[in-house]
Write a protein that binds this DNA or RNA. Structure first.
Lengths: 119, 119
DNA sequence: CTCATTACTTACATTTTTGTCAGTACTGGA
DNA sequence: TCCAGTACTGACAAAAATGTAAGTAATGAG
């Protein structure tokens, strides 16, 4: 998915190495990652529950974002040897440690963003 | 640059309307925005100074990111009627209000990221 | 044997972001 | 007239992110 040595990738890596902010933002910056993390802060969730609670993601993308969060050590994927399959996702301790930060980010946004009109 | 009604764009807008976190992350999430904001937290900077302090950005992208930050109300663009031209960028009060949040994001990243080896 | 259930994959297409490189506009001074 | 200096802009190209639609694997219930 990523070329190894495009200027784009090199720049990304360079910035992240220099700047904690860029690193953090890359981890939580995917389209659906904030939503997923927010859900998981409420506790462990099955794949199907996540899917239901975020109806506009396609499965492909949901899985993709979950895999990245897992690779980055923010969530755990718990597979139960059952049929039909059961897979649960939960925050790692590293993921949990995001909580205060996510709260601050959320608060800033809620103060400054234009709101959706509730119907 | 953006189609108005691609699923992609609609999803972005929907999420942002529902979730302060997604809104905030979209504002500060561009490749060079954290770096630019970090610079500007140190004070007003001329275009040429920004360019010099971030040597790997191309001018086109630098300008693009500055324009977006401006559109989103985080920075001001001050144009002096001089020749050769002089343009300075500074944080708005809204931009300044990001400071504690950026600090938290930066700190989290610095604790958790793998470091660049200093040469 | 067939079906329902769950958690995915795969192939492909579209949209968005980022980057390259060359050029422009202005004007005061040599 | 020609050039230096500053802050851009434009045409084009590559890479990355996101989305669509259809299919797969396993197995216990009926």
């Amino acid at each position: 998915m990523r070329k190894e040595s495009s200027t784009n990738t090199l720049n990304r890596e360079k910035i992240q190495g220099d700047c904690g902010m860029a690193y953090t933002l890359d981890l939580i910056g995917g389209r659906w990652k904030p939503t997923i993390l927010w859900r998981l802060l409420q506790g462990k969730q099955r794949y199907s529950e996540l899917k239901k609670s975020i109806p506009s993601v396609s499965e492909r993308i949901l899985v993709l974002q979950l895999r990245e969060l897992e690779k980055d050590g923010l969530i755990n994927r718990l597979v139960y040897a059952e049929v039909p399959p059961r897979v649960e996702y939960e925050l790692t301790s590293s993921g949990e440690s995001l909580k205060p930060m996510l709260q601050v980010i959320s608060d800033w946004g809620n103060v400054h963003r234009p709101r959706n009109t509730p119907d």
